[in-house]
């Protein structure tokens, strides 16, 4: 089955790395490379941020339960915070 395995791998790679059909602007090689280089770091920072917001949220939920009437979810004051709290939960 090595040929089938190779074919599966090739198809998988094709699916993963094929250029999107409608990418009509030049992404620029240097811009791609930079994103690949910083992606791990920024991804990790983002994961930490989401994690931190969850901890804070959990803590606020606990304290608001002891104080009836207090808002359970804080209003996001800056858009980067709202994106962190509203980020993907499933990934």
């Amino acid at each position: 089955m090595p040929s089938l395995a190779r074919l599966t791998l090739a198809l998988a790679l094709l699916a993963v790395f094929s250029r999107p059909a409608h990418a009509y602007i030049d992404p620029s090689t240097g811009s791609y490379v930079l994103q690949i280089l910083v992606a791990g770091f920024l991804g990790a920072m983002f994961a930490l941020k989401v994690f931190w917001h969850r901890i804070v949220g959990l803590f606020q939920n606990l304290t608001s339960r002891s104080k009836p009437g207090a808002p359970s979810v804080p209003e996001p004051s800056d858009p980067s915070e709202s994106s962190a709290s509203g980020g993907p939960t499933e990934s």
Binding site: F17, V38, A39, F41, A44, A47, S91
Partner: peptide, 22 residues
């Protein structure tokens, strides 16, 4: 070269969220 670089280190969806957030 572009294809090679991309093939070596794919960017995950979570990382794209990270780039957008930053």
């Amino acid at each position: 070269t572009t294809a090679k670089v991309r093939a070596r280190r794919p960017v995950t969806r979570q990382q794209l969220f990270g780039i957008v957030d930053n």
